[in-house]
């Protein structure tokens, strides 16, 4: 068995309630890679992510995990997922990320709080530990979520729209921080994003998925992000330019020539 991969999908059909959304997906994620998952709204990104995470069984085929199995996932959900009625402090929120290693019925110990402090330092917000999570700004919340994901000592970091509704300053700061932590801890990263240029700049591999068009493509950024495929998937006129060692993506509406 090839054990160099961290996660492998071979001839997998993703979907729910036994209904396949997209046939025959092959994907191999190696240790230390940074993957982006992109596609139009409702294109199947979340279903693919949930299948990879084991939250949703594939309709057909099997998701295989490499020698590190069981993998420890550090999950960064979207910021809007949490009910603000809960008076949860930043430290309490980050501690929940450690629960992956704390069995049910066991409380939080002193050493767990030490890890919380370390994670808050890693994301540069130790001063916010006693603040309420609900009272934070968007950028502060994103850093807290990142610390929460790091608290479990993950093999793989899963980011769901980490830069959604952030300004360019916040977006750059959080993505550079993610890049820094990835390099320092040699993490594998899987990021769902609508921002193609963010993916092109920070990821080295990408999955592009659109169930309505029965489209699935995976590979390096240069292999997948071509003007032709992006135009087809997003229904826009897309041009791709090489700027130094990265690519830049430009898009314009097709007017009446929209994808149906």
């Amino acid at each position: 068995m090839d054990s160099s991969f961290l996660i492998k999908l071979e001839d997998v059909v993703i979907g729910y309630d036994k209904r396949g959304l997209l046939d025959s997906i092959d994907l191999s994620i190696q240790n230390g890679q940074f993957w982006g998952i992109v596609g139009p709204n409702g294109g199947g990104k979340t279903t693919l992510l949930k299948t990879i995470l084991g939250l949703m069984p594939p309709v057909k085929g099997k998701v295989q995990y490499g020698k590190n199995h069981p993998l420890i996932f550090g999950y960064v959900p979207q910021r809007e997922n949490f009910d603000h009625i809960f008076p949860i402090s930043v430290a309490e929120f980050v501690a929940m990320g450690k629960y992956i290693r704390i069995p049910v019925g066991r409380g939080i110990k002193k050493e767990d709080w030490k890890i919380v402090t370390e994670c808050l330092e890693k994301v540069e917000i130790p001063h916010l530990r006693n603040r309420l999570f609900r009272s934070l700004s968007g950028g502060e919340k994103q850093r807290t979520l990142l610390a929460h994901a790091l608290a479990g000592g993950p093999d793989i970091l899963i980011l769901d729209e980490p830069t959604a509704s952030m300004d360019i300053k916040g977006e750059t700061a959080i993505m550079e921080l993610i890049g820094k932590i990835k390099e320092r801890d040699n993490l594998t990263v899987l990021m769902v994003s609508h921002f193609l240029n963010i993916v092109a700049r920070f990821a080295d591999h990408v999955v592009m998925i659109d169930k309505d068009d029965e489209f699935f493509s995976s590979g390096t950024i240069e292999e997948v992000f071509s003007g032709e495929t992006l135009s087809r998937v997003f229904g826009l006129n897309v041009t791709v330019e090489q700027v130094t060692d990265k690519i830049r993506i430009y898009a314009e509406a097709r007017g009446s020539d929209k994808k149906t």
Partner: peptide, 27 residues
Amino acid sequence: WIFFKDFIFVSFDPETARLFKYPVRIL
């Protein structure tokens, strides 16, 4: 007393609790 942390976790963030293989339905 025994399951305080777990009841708070599944109430506040059931999605992550499921990902962490917590018995969300039982809790």
